[in-house]
Design a protein around this nucleic acid. Structure first.
Lengths: 143, 143
DNA sequence: CATAAGTGTAACAAGAATAGTTACAATATG
DNA sequence: CATATTGTAACTATTCTTGTTACACTTATG
C-alpha cells in the first residue's frame, strides 16, 4: 500500500505551525487530514521521537511544535517518518554463483545511497515556513 | 510490500548486457535473481514495452537488449518499471473547508515532481555500461 | 510433422506493509 | 469527581508485490 506518512506529516506540521499559540488536538488534525485521530496520534508519536513536536495529555491537552517553522526543514520531516529507501533491493538474495548476482547488490546499495542523498539535498532546501507560504499563495490563487 | 522491480530490472539487464551475443532464457535469469521465471517474464514484458529488450518465443527463444549497454541509462530503466512516486499523497482527500487541507495537496504534488526530477537527474548520469563496470570491479575486489 | 523447449499471460494464493477502528489506561483541568 | 484528551495495544481491512500453477501459442530440430 502506498505510504502517505510524509504527506500527512507535512500537512499536520503545517497545521501546527499555523496554530503556534495553542495546543492542537488530534481530532482537529484528523478532520483536516480526513482520517482517524489514532492515525494522527501515531504519526505525532514519530514526530515527537524526532523532536519536532511535544504533546500534553489530559484535559486541554494537545500538540505544539518545538521549534519555529523556519527551523524545521523537510528533510527532518522525511527522516522522521520514512522507513526504507527510494527503491528496494532484492527480496531474495541473488545467486552468489553468478558473477552478476554476486555483486549486483552492493552496486545497487551504493546507488540507493546516492539517490537518497540527492533527495535529502533537495528536501533540505525547504522549511515548514516555505510550505506555509506556498499553501497561503495557493489560497489566493484559487480563491 | 517493498517494490524491488527496479533492482530486478537492473540485474536482469546487466545479465543481458553480459550476454549480448545470445538469447537469454527467463529460467536462467530467474536462477540468478533467485525468483520464479514468470516473475522475470513479467518484468521483461515491461522492459519490452519500454523498448529496452526484445524476446523470441519457441524453441531457442529468449531475450536480448535492443541497444548497446552504453545507450541505456538508469532513468529509462526506472521509468520502465516504476509506477508511482517517491512519496504518496493523501490516501483520502483532505478537508477542503480547512485552509491548509484545501491547498496542501497541490503544494505536495509540486514537491513530488521536484523530487522526482532530482532523482531522474541523478539516475540519468549512469548507463548500463557503468553498472557492468561496477559489478566487475566488485568481482575483483571481493575475489 | 511430431516433439521438445521456449515465451506470454491469466488466474489465483501468499506475504507484507499501511491505514482504519475499537477499546481502554493514564493524565490533566476545573 | 467528572470530563476531555493523549498514548498505545490489538485487531481488521485494504492494497500492493511476489510467487505459483496452468496453459495456449511459437519455433527449431530430428
Amino acid at each position: 500500500m502506498a505510504n502517505s506518512q510524509f504527506a500527512m506529516a507535512v500537512h499536520v506540521l503545517t497545521m501546527l505551525a499555523d496554530n503556534c499559540d495553542e495546543r492542537v488536538k488530534s481530532s482537529y488534525l484528523a478532520k483536516s487530514v480526513n482520517t482517524n485521530a489514532v492515525v494522527i496520534r501515531r504519526l505525532l508519536s514519530d514526530l515527537h521521537d524526532a523532536g519536532l513536536v511535544v504533546s500534553r495529555t489530559g484535559y486541554s491537552g494537545g500538540t505544539c511544535l518545538t521549534k519555529d517553522p523556519e527551523d524545521i526543514n523537510l528533510l527532518e520531516i522525511y527522516r522522521a517518518v520514512s522507513h526504507g529507501e527510494v527503491f528496494s533491493l532484492h527480496r531474495q538474495k541473488p545467486d552468489k554463483d553468478c558473477p552478476v548476482g554476486k555483486n549486483i547488490e552492493s552496486v545497487l546499495c551504493n546507488l540507493q545511497k546516492e539517490i537518497d542523498s540527492a533527495i535529502g539535498e533537495r528536501l533540505g532546501r525547504y522549511t515548514l515556513r516555505d510550505i506555509i507560504s506556498m499553501v497561503r499563495r495557493g489560497e489566493e490563487v484559487f480563491a
